[in-house]
Write a protein that binds this DNA or RNA. Structure first.
Lengths: 278, 278
DNA sequence: TTAATAGTGTCTTTAAGACAATATGTT
DNA sequence: AACATATTGTCTTAAAGACACTATTAA
């Protein structure tokens, strides 16, 4: 029996198969209102969540996502679902991890491949006016809050106007140093659908790790930006202050100077930079 | 319609679904014969491959792996398939990435989740005698060989006795700094089944990256080891020499001294250490 | 002029690279 | 004694942390 004959007779359908979805944690950074004309606006890290209009978890919030279709890759699924569900066309999409825990989806046997997407906040606000979708940007807080006997506990808080979604996750003590990001288990979750608190906690960790080791910060900014903007992006993602001279020494090799400057700020205008392509 | 009623009526089978597999790159480090009683044996990084006994790719070599079954996670699939196909029970298994490129498997619509596993080479050789399986440890070489107009080209060579499997992969030039590991495309592959040259190239990159940032090196050694062994493991994985004083300064906080020493080596015996649990 | 941020200089501290020196078993 | 590796010391070089200082604009 040669290869061609074999393949003709091969029935890939004889075993039960899971459904496969892609879920996307899409992050962006927005300027929040400035206090006076001199001050720089604060930046906030946000994630786009969709209010579920049907069971299961009707009325709760979930990451955008959907089913893998024939003749498309998981990356294409992620891109398509993000566009369909939220109207966002992103140009940075990175696969993170596939979740296959038993019972993770009450609808049945469904595994999901998690993605991280990034988009420039300024480009979003332009199209943000139409309410065609129920997608909303939630401000993120994700911090260690203490230490249980089984490991460090982190609190995830997502806020949008009066809506407040929360989760408590625990960092596995064993294997603490075997993976680059901690392995979390969810202790509590309020207002978030499925296992999406876990997906989001993992995604935030990946974002914090990757921003220090790669170029992805530029995906969160418009093509031209100031070094202060760039530093604020790092600080907002990492949730801590950085020292400016040290930050600049490191970042200078990743950016290209332009001859343009900021205008009409209430202080010394900052030079504009671009990401260096190399 | 409440949630329970909805779920009872929900038919997860109405859309076509892919088959899902897990494939495992299992690495180990073996001592190769020493030249004389004084010299330390060389260490070699190896990967366990299985000769395919049926189409497609009959007679070629593939990563061990198999289909995800109902009521198991991908991690369980990986563990089970590794045990069934090769007899190896590993205690380090880490998910890497899910591959869903169209046409990646000639049998049909099959996506695969790639894993990396590590095991102590010394523990293997004990059981290595039985030829119950067709699994073989191949020595790995994975190096940059040049630069095409589209990016850096790497050569993967896998050797076991007279068998030599090779592949050429190209590192994507764009997005070079957006991911922690380069994105490869396969240019050529000889003797390797499916897209496993790609999976393996990615896995080797992940191994090289992770060994410098985590504790996983200890998984490649027995519970007690010398610091020279440990350094050799790093050097073998990274394919370059390290400076001993610098290496020791960094590693000392990850290990715990014992009061035992090597014996019957033709030179000053080395103190034995254990991984520090913290 | 003032408030606020932009941008640079430099000293200190820490880590990494490089190489040399000493230590200690087995044959 | 000689070999080969084990282990430590220290000088050099590079990077990161910390803080202070000067520069520049709109109101």
């Amino acid at each position: 029996m040669n290869e061609q004959v074999f393949l003709k007779k091969y029935d890939v359908c004889k075993y039960p198969k899971p459904s496969v979805t892609a879920d996307i944690s899409i992050f962006s950074i927005f300027d929040e209102g400035r206090k006076n004309y001199r001050k720089l606006p604060d930046k906030k890290l946000k994630v786009l969540l969709v209010k579920r209009g049907r069971p299961p978890f009707e009325g709760m919030y979930a990451l955008p996502g959907g089913f893998l279709r024939e003749h498309e890759t998981l990356e294409q699924t992620a891109y398509r679902e993000l566009l369909e569900e939220t109207g966002v066309e992103c140009n940075f999409l990175e696969q993170l991890k596939t979740y296959s825990t038993i019972g993770r989806d009450p609808r049945g046997w469904i595994i999901t491949c998690a993605f991280m997407a990034l988009i420039d906040g300024a480009s979003i606000q332009v199209y943000g006016g139409d309410d065609a979708t129920s997608a909303e940007w939630f401000q993120i807080s994700f911090r260690e809050t203490g230490c249980s006997e089984n490991g460090i506990v982190w609190e995830l808080v997502l806020e949008k106007d009066n809506i407040r979604l929360t989760a408590l996750v625990q960092q596995a003590d064993d294997a603490k140093y075997q993976a680059e990001c901690p392995h979390f288990t969810v202790l509590e979750q309020n207002g978030l659908a499925f296992d999406h608190a876990l997906l989001l906690a993992d995604a935030i960790c990946s974002l914090r790790r990757l921003i220090g080791r790669t170029n992805i910060a530029f995906e969160l900014l418009p093509p031209m930006f100031t070094l202060s903007d760039l530093q604020q992006v790092y600080e907002t993602v990492l949730d801590r202050k950085l020292l400016t001279p040290s930050f600049r020494r490191k970042i200078v090799e990743l950016v290209e100077e332009t001859d343009q400057f900021q205008e009409t700020v209430g202080h010394r205008p900052s030079k504009l930079f671009m990401a260096r392509c190399r």
